[in-house]
């Protein structure tokens, strides 16, 4: 399944946040969106997943929904968005309960996704007992439970410390190698972008426009070995962004 954004334009109050953005997320492809803070990356992702209506332009899906997918467009949130009053398995169960799945089948799915994210030992734990990295793993397990066609990831590693981020990045690469999910991955961290992205879309500061697109052909699994090459790519992306980021930093914001 493909996700196509056509000429997305959006404004909050008087100011334009997104200006004529078009992009496509192909099957099995991770597209990273980077940009200075306040450039409307998260708004773009909310529009892509149908949580917000764009002021102009269209968010489209093309191709058949993969069989068994309960929620084709599935988010991973920066703050994990786990219910604090539910255990790990309860949080995964939450997103299955509205689909009329038999209890036995549900427990099967929960056990399966927890095993795939190495969380089986934590099934009965409450979110407050888990570290940030574990919480995000639970959120990933929850997303896997509904068999998404496209994952919409909103700064999924930004709330984690750099070591945990490194570990989770490895997990994501392993997961992608196994399951070839497609994803739209919003981040402000260029290192994550060059490690995970097949394409990197660089947005300008507000109003967000597509400034440049960087394609990376290197297979995901090889990237951890070829960090120096990525380093130079990362520098290239930074060169594109630098002025924008500097200007964005000096702006007075009036929109949350």
């Amino acid at each position: 399944m493909q996700l196509i954004l056509q000429n997305i334009t959006h404004r909050y109050g008087g100011s334009t946040v997104l200006d004529d953005i078009s992009l496509t997320v192909d099957d099995g492809e991770i597209v990273c969106i980077v940009g200075p803070s306040g450039c409307g990356k998260s708004t773009l992702l909310r529009i892509a997943g149908g949580l917000e209506k764009p002021g102009g332009g269209k968010a489209l899906l093309s191709g058949p929904t993969p069989e068994g997918s309960l929620n084709p467009l599935t988010y991973i949130f920066q703050d994990f968005a786990l219910l604090p009053w539910r255990t790990v398995e309860g949080n995964v169960s939450l997103v299955l309960e509205d689909h009329g799945i038999a209890r036995s089948e549900r427990t099967g799915i929960i056990a399966d996704v927890l095993a795939r994210t190495n969380l089986s030992d934590f099934a009965k734990a409450l979110p407050r007992q888990l570290s940030g990295g574990m919480k995000q793993r639970v959120a990933i397990a929850r997303a896997l439970a509904v068999k998404p066609a496209i994952m919409l990831m909103d700064e999924p590693l930004s709330a984690l410390d750099s070591q945990t981020r490194e570990l989770l990045m490895d997990d994501l690469v392993a997961l992608w190698t196994r399951e070839r999910f497609s994803a739209c991955y919003v981040t402000h961290n260029l290192n994550e972008a060059v490690r995970l992205g097949r394409r990197i879309i660089v947005l300008s500061r507000r109003p967000g426009r597509i400034r440049d697109i960087v394609e990376i052909d290197m297979p995901l699994a090889e990237r951890v070995e070829r960090l120096p090459e990525l380093e130079s790519l990362q520098r290239r992306v930074w060169e594109i962004m630098r002025e924008e980021a500097r200007e964005a930093d000096r702006e007075i914001t009036d929109v949350a």
Binding site: G49, L70, D79, D98
Partner: peptide
């Protein structure tokens, strides 16, 4: 954000209120 999460997973209105 929790409500938005519920919506993003397609939970029904009643489920969001109740859970």
């Amino acid at each position: 954000n929790l409500i938005r999460m519920g919506q993003s997973f397609g939970l029904s209105w009643l489920s969001i209120v109740r859970k």
